[in-house]
Simulated scan of single mutants.
Amino acid sequence: MTTNRILHVMAVLCVAAVAVALVSQHVFDMRPCAWCVLQRLVFLAIAAVCWLGVLAGRVAPGLRRFAGLLAALLGAGGMVAAWYQYSVAAQRFSCDMTFADRFMVASGLDAGVPWLFGIFASCLDARVELLGVEYALWGMGLFALLTVMALMAAARRSGRRR
């Protein structure tokens, strides 16, 4: 698989993950917590980095590798966020004043784009399962897969066809 294809598949997976989260929220009334919406932001950042890497790689092929490295860092950050949500935040009644809450509020995204980044539940209330597995674990698994794919993209030599 070429570097471009890896980056493109990663971006599509990220957008699909956010789409599933939005359907869960708006169709099935599963309200997100601060850690949920922070992970949405990380997924969208990975998608943007990947697609920018594909575009910029046409001019400077080395930028594809850089995009892979940056996406791997974001993926690792997403795994940490998902792990924290699952193991710490979901055990507490409130996400208030945690890093995710402070970051999302300070960014203005929760108020500016509430249909995507609005915080509507506590961490304890946001513990939701899909096919018997908590959303946070699905997110962690997807972040792990994306990190591996990103490292594969970063490790590939920058050639004309990659």
Rank of each mutant, 00 (worst) to 15 (best):
C50I: 01
W51F: 07
G53I: 11
L44R: 07
F66N: 00
A47R: 03
F66L: 15
R64A: 15
A48T: 14
L55R: 14
G57Q: 13
V59L: 15
V54P: 04
A48Y: 07
R65I: 04
V54W: 02
F43N: 03
Q39N: 15
W51S: 02
L55T: 08
L52N: 04
L41A: 14
I46W: 01
F43K: 04
V42T: 12
L44Q: 13
F43D: 01
L52C: 08
P61T: 08
L69F: 14
L52S: 08
F66C: 02
R58A: 13
G68R: 11
R40F: 02
V54G: 01
P61R: 15
A67K: 03
G53E: 12
R64P: 07
G53K: 10
R65E: 05
L63R: 10
A56T: 01
I46G: 00
A47S: 12
G62I: 06
A56V: 05
G68A: 12
V42M: 11
L41I: 01
V49P: 00
L55M: 10
F66V: 14
G53A: 13
L52R: 06
A45D: 07
A67Q: 03
W51E: 10
L44K: 04
L52P: 00
R65Y: 06
W51N: 00
F43R: 05
A45Q: 11
L69I: 12
F43E: 06
F43Y: 15
R65P: 01
F43M: 09
L44A: 12
F43P: 04
L69G: 14
V42E: 09
L55D: 04
A48M: 10
W51D: 05
L55K: 11
R40W: 04
R65F: 02
L63N: 04
I46R: 00
A47M: 03
L69N: 03
Q39P: 00
L70C: 08
L70P: 00
G57P: 10
W51I: 06
F43T: 02
R40L: 02
G57C: 12
R58W: 04
L52F: 09
A56I: 05
Q39D: 14
R40K: 11
C50K: 02
C50H: 02
P61S: 08
I46V: 11
V59N: 08
L52I: 08
A48W: 06
G68F: 13
I46L: 02
L63W: 14
V49A: 13
G53R: 09
L70Q: 05
L55C: 03
A45L: 15
A48S: 10
V49E: 05
P61W: 05
A45C: 14
L41G: 07
V42H: 01
G57F: 10
R58L: 11
G62M: 12
R58I: 00
